[in-house]
């Protein structure tokens, strides 16, 4: 699918929820998340199991917001960073909903929204689809990097895998029972896996920036629009390093983002705090920030149209040790505000 997918019937995100761990709750967006666990364990005895229960908890919260039970959901897309995506399959994936596990590294949230919209457009019988993505700092550190108590220094380009999760419930916007203010996905563009040549696992922003630039350039050249047609261009987790590289790459290709760019990874943590360095990352980073910050702004009408691209660094430690480089990917969805509330409610 090289072309932009335009959904004849837009897809509404009619309910969503977010949750984070302790470090994220202490960050600048801390108060916006639906709940957090300062211990990062989410009631489980290991980090990995904690991520499973996080994945179930955010989906359950989104369901209860919609007043629905899991039996009313037709399809679930979910992904995380753990090997075999086990946090998703053992977490929300085991709740009895027909389930597809996804791996798009940190781009999974957007990949899931895109696939959910496709599924809703493809089948009349599929009425409600859930998308859940999570990441867990401790589980990711153990799997990809070093033991938690290992004493090392992180380089300034390194990013901090967020302990976070987000759940989204989607349906076609013409469903009669739906709240018309719900933000909707009107179009999407599938990203291309792009080899940045970067081999430094501690500089994933640089590995993802070319993929993000590629998707953005393709989108604007296919649609004929300009960045000022959008209130925000939101990337998932390029971090400070990757964001600066993205802006430079786009400028070289004749596209000026005109101050509209925001990055969830940069927003999630206070950059002055030691050791966060370039910002947050992980499947849960973009998902939780989308649910806690950007979707509410669309619901309130403060933002009308945004581009949302979660960015993924498709990194494998053994591939890196074998001399491989990190591929980046960035799927994109267009998010628009729903119908404004009538009658001037406050």
């Amino acid at each position: 699918m090289r072309s932009i997918i335009r959904f004849e019937t837009p897809v509404s995100i009619y309910a969503h929820a977010s949750a984070v761990g302790g470090a994220e709750a202490d960050g600048p967006l801390g108060a916006l998340f639906d709940f957090h666990d300062p211990t990062d364990r989410f009631g489980a005895d290991t980090w990995e199991k904690g991520e499973e229960s996080l994945s179930r908890a955010v989906l359950n919260l989104a369901l209860s917001r919609a007043g629905q039970s899991q039996d009313e959901i037709d399809l679930l897309f979910s992904g995380d960073l753990q090997n075999q995506c086990v946090a998703s399959s053992a977490g929300c994936g085991s709740m009895g909903i027909p389930y597809c596990g996804l791996y798009g590294a940190c781009s999974t949230s957007c990949e899931g929204l895109l696939l959910a919209s496709l599924a809703l457009s493809a089948s009349r019988e599929t009425r409600r689809v859930a998308v859940v993505t999570t990441s867990h700092n401790a589980a990711a550190e153990r799997q990809f990097r070093l033991p938690l108590e290992y004493g090392g220094q992180r380089t300034p380009t390194a990013q901090w895998t967020a302990t976070a999760g987000g759940a989204f419930l989607l349906a076609r916007a013409n469903e009669p029972t739906l709240d018309p203010v719900a933000p909707r996905i009107t179009a999407a563009l599938v990203g291309r896996a792009l080899d940045s040549g970067v081999k430094d696992g501690a500089n994933m922003g640089a590995a993802m920036a070319p993929a993000a630039a590629d998707t953005i350039l393709r989108f604007f050249s296919l649609s004929g629009e300009r960045p000022y047609d959008y209130d925000r261009i939101v990337t998932g987790d390029l971090g400070a390093e990757g964001s600066a590289l993205l802006v430079e790459l786009l400028r070289e290709n004749g596209l000026n983002l005109a101050g509209r760019h925001r990055d969830c990874g940069v927003l999630l943590f206070d950059p002055l705090k030691a050791d966060v360095h370039a910002g947050g990352s992980g499947c849960g980073c973009s998902a939780s920030v989308l649910s806690a910050l950007f979707l509410p702004a669309l619901e309130r009408g403060e933002l009308r149209r945004i581009l949302f691209l979660a960015t993924g660094a498709l990194m494998s430690p053994s591939n890196l040790l074998q001399g491989g480089s990190i591929l980046g990917i960035a799927p994109l969805v267009v998010l628009e505000a729903g119908k404004p509330k009538k009658g001037g409610t406050t």
């Binding site: 792009l194 080899d195 940045s196 040549g197 970067v198 070319p210 630039a213 590629d214 350039l217 393709r218 790459l249 070289e252 290709n253």
Partner: peptide
């Protein structure tokens, strides 16, 4: 996209 890997690195 105009992308030269060597220059980018």
């Amino acid at each position: 996209m105009n992308f030269d890997r060597r220059r980018y690195l």
